[in-house]
């Protein structure tokens, strides 16, 4: 089974968040990238736009289909990872680190309370894989 870093929080749509003060760096989990397979294209929001919790912040196309990416938090997009736009394979090869997607300035830190820690997310994906 995958190892999910302890310093990240996770939503049930397989996105992760790294929190530093009011800044949230967001990406997709190793479990997600493995299920999606080879990622071929990505669409991310523009800097200065807003993302809403549990609403799509981007879209990915892999060899298997198109997938909407659900934001774990709400806020203003401060940065977008240009490196993955140049080399999309990074999302598959290093999803929890250099494969990050956007940085958001959170508008409500209490939204973090609804996210899962690494242990809870680990249990969630095991249950999801079994339940499917």
């Amino acid at each position: 089974m995958k190892v999910f870093p302890d310093d990240l929080l996770y939503n049930r749509e397989h996105s992760w968040v790294r929190v530093e003060g009011e800044l949230a760096t967001i990406g997709i989990t190793d479990y997600a990238q493995e299920n999606l397979g080879e990622i071929l294209a990505i669409e991310l929001p523009e800097v200065d736009s807003y993302v809403e919790r549990d609403e799509p912040f981007g879209t990915i196309e892999s060899a298997k289909g198109v997938f909407e990416l659900m934001s774990p938090v709400s806020g203003e997009v401060l940065n977008v990872n240009e490196d993955i736009l140049d080399d999309i394979g990074i999302i598959n090869s290093d999803p929890h680190d250099t494969g990050w997607m956007i940085v958001v300035e959170m508008k409500d830190l209490e939204e973090l309370d609804d996210l899962l820690d690494s242990r809870e997310y680990h249990d969630f994906v095991i249950k999801e894989a079994e339940g499917d």
Binding site: G65, V66, F67, E68, M70
Partner: peptide, 10 residues
């Protein structure tokens, strides 16, 4: 064939 998935629905 082709797919889209979001929020647990395809």
């Amino acid at each position: 064939s082709a797919q889209v998935r979001s929020r647990g629905v395809f």
